[in-house]
């Protein structure tokens, strides 16, 4: 426990050190605020934005896009992954195409989606769903394949049908990988919604970044970044929380690493 507390203190120290260094460099180097604002001015701006509620409607828009897209993408990934896992022929047929689509950066088709689905929320939901879908699908497929041969033999030896093997072995066995996929999907969903708004939107945090960036309100852009990371971290934290309780048997040393994606 001593080392655990030590790590926490160390982490906090790194953050504070980083902010202090940033403040000093901006201060001493006399860097103009429209290039890099000092963290203190970002703080002041954040306070102002929260008090005036400027970003609130935009946060709501982006958060709705993220959640709707995530729900659709994750549900589709699960459904498709389970179907493919239960029908090896389907997997053989579609697998090369999945790999092909995987190599394509999904955000690159965002402009097309804006043309097809308009400037409103729909196009952002579609982009978000699309980027959330693939990590989910790939992990679901890999998860169902990860059942150990000996365990499959064991189930068969004790008289389990195909369906009961799925229910009692393949599905729970796939859960850790499904949650890993969900963690990636959550992070991707935030990226998807923001990129979609960059390409063309009338509201949302990504849209506000383009607006404030154009006005050289760099401190304002930083406040949006703070809001976006708060959204990302909260969603990731929720998934993590559910995951820890659901797949309690998995040794989780890779805790923080997933955020690096």
């Amino acid at each position: 426990m001593k080392t655990r507390v030590g790590i926490q203190v160390g982490r906090a120290a790194i953050l504070i050190g980083f902010l202090v260094l940033w403040e000093l460099i901006v201060d001493i180097g006399k860097i103009p605020p429209f290039i890099v604002p000092a963290p203190s001015s970002v703080g002041v701006r954040l306070y102002q934005v929260v008090i005036e509620g400027t970003l609130w409607p935009h946060t709501l828009v982006t958060l709705s896009e993220i959640l709707a897209g995530l729900a659709i993408g994750v549900a589709a990934g699960l459904l498709f992954g389970v179907t493919v896992a239960l029908m090896p022929l389907a997997e053989d047929l579609v697998y090369p195409y999945l790999v092909g689509i995987q190599t394509l950066p999904k955000v690159a088709i965002a402009p097309l989606l804006i043309i097809w689905f308009g400037y409103g929320m729909t196009s952002k939901v579609v982009i978000t769903a699309l980027v959330a879908f693939f990590p989910m699908l790939v992990n679901v497929m890999a998860g169902f394949h990860s059942a150990d041969r000996d365990q499959l033999d064991m189930m068969r030896a004790f008289g389990a049908s195909r369906w009961r093997t799925f229910l009692n072995l393949r599905l729970p066995n796939a859960l850790p990988m499904i949650f890993a996929g969900l963690e990636i999907s959550v992070v991707f969903a935030v990226i998807g919604a923001v990129v979609g708004e960059f390409v063309g939107a009338q509201a949302g945090l990504g849209y506000m970044i383009t607006v404030w960036n154009f006005n050289l309100d760099v401190a304002g852009v930083f406040t949006i970044l703070v809001v976006l990371s708060a959204i990302g971290l909260s969603l990731h934290g929720i998934v993590k929380f559910i995951s820890r309780r659901t797949v309690f048997w998995v040794n989780r040393d890779r805790d923080e690493k997933i955020l690096g994606i």
Partner: peptide, 23 residues
């Protein structure tokens, strides 16, 4: 088997009762 092949998400008693449940 050589590996215990227990199901990680089941308790000891639920693991041991698996064949009885399947049958």
């Amino acid at each position: 088997f050589q590996a215990a092949t227990l199901l990680a998400w089941r308790t000891v008693i639920d693991n041991a009762m698996l064949p009885a449940q399947l049958q």
